[in-house]
Design a protein around this nucleic acid. Structure first.
Lengths: 111, 111
DNA sequence: CTTCAGGTACGATGCAAGTCATACCTGAAG
DNA sequence: CTTCAGGTATGACTTGCATCGTACCTGAAG
C-alpha cells in the first residue's frame, strides 16, 4: 500500500504558461491557496477541500494541477493523496506561493 | 494631443484571478514579459511588440491586459500608447513581475 | 463472495475565449 | 478636400475548457 506517485514534469520543465493557466481557474486556485497556507506541507485527501463540484470535475482539476507541476498525486488505488510541490515551485518560480496569499485585497489590515 | 488614459481598475481592486487569466495567454504574457524587462517603463507603441496576430486581435489582448489592471492605455485618437503599471502591480502583487522574467529556465538552472 | 465509497475513463454539452473579416472612426500628411 | 495608417466595433467562427452523466475500476469491510 505504498502508493505510487503519478508523474508530473521535472523542476526544470515547469512551464510558466501552464502554471498561469492552472491558476486561472477559481477552484484550482482555492486549492493551491489552501495548500500554500499550510506550512507543514502534509499530505491531504482529495475531498478535504470540499469543492462545490462533482468528483469527475475534481479529478480533472487535480490532474491539471499535477500536469502543471504544482502538486503531487499519490495513488493508493481506491483513494488519492495530494501534496504541494513547495520546494520545486519555490526553486523554479520563487514568490509564486506567496503571491497566492494576497488573494484578498484587504490583506493589508486583516483580523 | 494630450491623450486620455483609458480606464482600468484601481490598485486595491486588482483581482488575482483576472491577472492569472490575463497572463495565461501566450501573446499577452510575451507583452508583459517585454514590459517587465524594460526598467525604464517608457511608453511604447502597440505595434512595437510585433505579435503574429491581426490588429483586431491585438486590440482585444491589450484590452484584457488593461481590464486586468496590468497596463495603461493612452488613447491619442489614431494611435495608442502602452505603459506598464509597475508600481501598482508591485504594491498589490509583489514579485509578480519578477516571476515573468523566469520564463526561460536557462538563467538559474541550465540543463 | 458481495457491498460500498473513492476515483477514473469516456463522451456529451454548454459556455468562454482567441481569432479574423468587414466596415467604420481618427488624426496627420499631402 | 483626399489619402492613408493605426485603431476600434461588430459579428461570425472555432477552439478550448469546465462541467456532468454513465459506466467502470480499486481496495477495504462485511
Amino acid at each position: 500500500m505504498a502508493g505510487r506517485n503519478l508523474v508530473g514534469p521535472e523542476v526544470d520543465a515547469l512551464d510558466l504558461g501552464a502554471v498561469f493557466r492552472a491558476l486561472a481557474d477559481e477552484h484550482r486556485r482555492s486549492v493551491m491557496t489552501e495548500l500554500a497556507a499550510d506550512r507543514s506541507d502534509s499530505e491531504r485527501g482529495c475531498n478535504s477541500f470540499d469543492l462545490p463540484i462533482s468528483k469527475q470535475t475534481q479529478t480533472h482539476h487535480f490532474r491539471v494541477l499535477r500536469e502543471a507541476g504544482l502538486i503531487d498525486e499519490i495513488d493508493y488505488g481506491n483513494r488519492k493523496g495530494i501534496r504541494l510541490r513547495r520546494a520545486d515551485i519555490e526553486k523554479r518560480f520563487p514568490g509564486l506561493l506567496t503571491l497566492l496569499g494576497s488573494e484578498s485585497p484587504g490583506g493589508t489590515a486583516p483580523r
